[in-house]
Design a protein around this nucleic acid. Structure first.
Lengths: 312, 312
DNA sequence: TTGTAAGCGTTATCAG
DNA sequence: CTGATAACGCTTACAA
């Protein structure tokens, strides 16, 4: 009869939620939150993840709350009202967003969220499930490729605020296997978003200082493309004078023909989004109770930006 | 006393919503929905809008619901449960999403949404507020620029499913003012996403057919960049052999130096997002009751992809 | 097995 | 003007 009349108690969740306070049960609201920064939302990295998330959440009929846009400056001090009210069933976080630890602590402390599931993407997080990629293996494959071309020194350039430690660790592992001193073979050079001139000068200085270093590893594709522009302006030709590698396979380094030149490691970002969403939904449905970590493989994509080092 | 004890009736919105059924009042949930397609979410066009939306909604402490990801195929038949439950205070829509009319009708028909505010971005919509850009003026400025360079014929290429009529109308207005037959001067050539080969052949055929037409207007930057790749492969040099223009200023047509070549019309997309969010929040707060339309100016950005036509 | 009543937290109403 | 009361729709404990 209920079905005939189109009656669905889910429609009046407000009443159910009210009543459930007595029995300390939880109401599933089919709503999950995504914590990210507007800064990240500018690039394809983010919207590939979003595409995977959207696909799975849509299928599971979950809605996605997504305007958490923390600034890099201050840690979050308050949760959105809808979270404190207990209407958000779970949360997705994303590596690279400032102050994730504080956010997680804040969520855990709030009675409106408590120990509901959190799934972290691209970075492990204490007490949360995670969907990661084989970062270390990616760095290893990249370095193997460069070593095979004859390079013996690499300059690793990345935001100083990011810690892609696994990536570099993979590079260094490959170096050790080739009998090279990993600290000599992979030199880290931070760059500073807030001071482009300084970063550029620092890059060119390092290239002059280490004449045998003719390969540059940008911490990700976005960084690599920026470095490419600086190198071009300084008259350094890629890959004749210097090889360049990225990470992610999200950006195009355009050759005159329009083709993508950038040798990189492809991360399965859409799949990361899918898996993270699926994991969160399983948690919410109670099909999983313990935090779980998934690692997805990455793939070396060799294009035109890498070549043997020029003769000394 | 309430303040001392940290008591806030907003925290128990469920109870308030329950009670309000009797008096037919509405509960503001500080939650708005964004209707878009995953297809759009792939490009900077979308995330510039999102950036503006996020900024204002964050400031007003509204949350954003954003996993409406309709496929192009089928019109929406059901609203997310959270909308039907009346927990979404208002909706933002975006031009280019399939079946917007059906969505609006569906919302209006659903007692859970009824006549709550809808703000449409980049396209007017019956019975809704809208934030638009001066499309026609943009087309006019582009055409003025081309006419000034000496062009007398332009090929307009765009998705056949999109109707950027105002843009073309602006072009034709400029032609009329120069005493040209607008239908002769601006020829429309649709292209077909599902059949790239056909679109490419059609483009090259048209160029051969109209030898005096040496300027191409891609309906937007994304389209223009795609056309640029096809032209390059066909050996057509930009801008020496043929000028190329886009619209939006969202994509880069990279010169060998990495600089952006594309002459285009900049749309203030972040500002569109900000205004749309602000408008929706004002509606929800009851500060505005009647639908309102805002039009923002656009700006011609002349770069290297336009030049005088080659001598006949 | 079926039926009844209480109560979740809020607010409108009505009596005092 | 103040203060008590009932009802929004649901779930559950308990009685029949």
């Amino acid at each position: 009869v209920a079905r005939e009349l189109g009656y669905d108690p889910e429609q009046a969740l407000a009443a159910r939620r009210l009543r459930y306070r007595r029995s300390e049960r939880q109401v599933v609201n089919r709503l999950v939150g995504l914590y990210f920064s507007l800064r990240q939302a500018r690039g394809p990295y983010f919207y590939q993840l979003l595409e995977g998330l959207g696909e799975v959440l849509d299928g599971a009929e979950f809605a996605l709350l997504s305007n958490w846009a923390p600034s890099a400056k201050a840690p979050p001090v308050r949760l959105p009202a809808i979270v404190s009210r207990g209407e958000v069933d779970g949360v997705l976080t994303l590596s690279g967003v400032p102050h994730i630890d504080q956010l997680v602590a804040l969520l855990r402390r709030d009675p409106g969220f408590g120990d509901r599931p959190i799934v972290s993407m691209m970075e492990p997080e204490e007490g949360c499930s995670a969907v990661l990629t084989a970062d270390s293996a990616g760095g290893y494959a990249l370095m193997q490729h460069l070593l095979g071309l004859g390079h013996r020194q690499v300059l690793y350039v990345d935001f100083h605020t990011w810690q892609n430690g696994q990536r570099v660790e993979g590079c260094r592992r490959a170096c050790r296997e080739h009998g090279l001193d990993p600290l000599q073979a992979v030199r880290a050079l931070p760059y500073y978003t807030e001071d482009e001139r300084r970063s550029r000068a620092s890059l060119l200085h390092s290239l002059a200082q280490y004449p045998r270093c003719r390969a540059i590893f940008g911490g990700n594709d976005m960084t690599a493309c920026l470095l490419a522009a600086w190198l071009r302006e300084a008259g350094v030709q890629i890959p004749q004078d210097c090889s360049l590698i990225g990470f992610d396979d999200t950006h195009t380094l355009a050759a005159p023909t329009g083709a993508n030149l950038l040798t990189t490691v492809r991360q399965p970002l859409i799949e990361v989004g899918r898996r993270a969403a699926a994991l969160l939904v399983q948690h919410i449905r109670g099909e999983i109770t313990e935090p779980r970590t998934i690692e997805l493989p990455v793939e070396l994509v060799v294009r035109g930006s890498t070549a043997p080092p020029p003769p000394a």
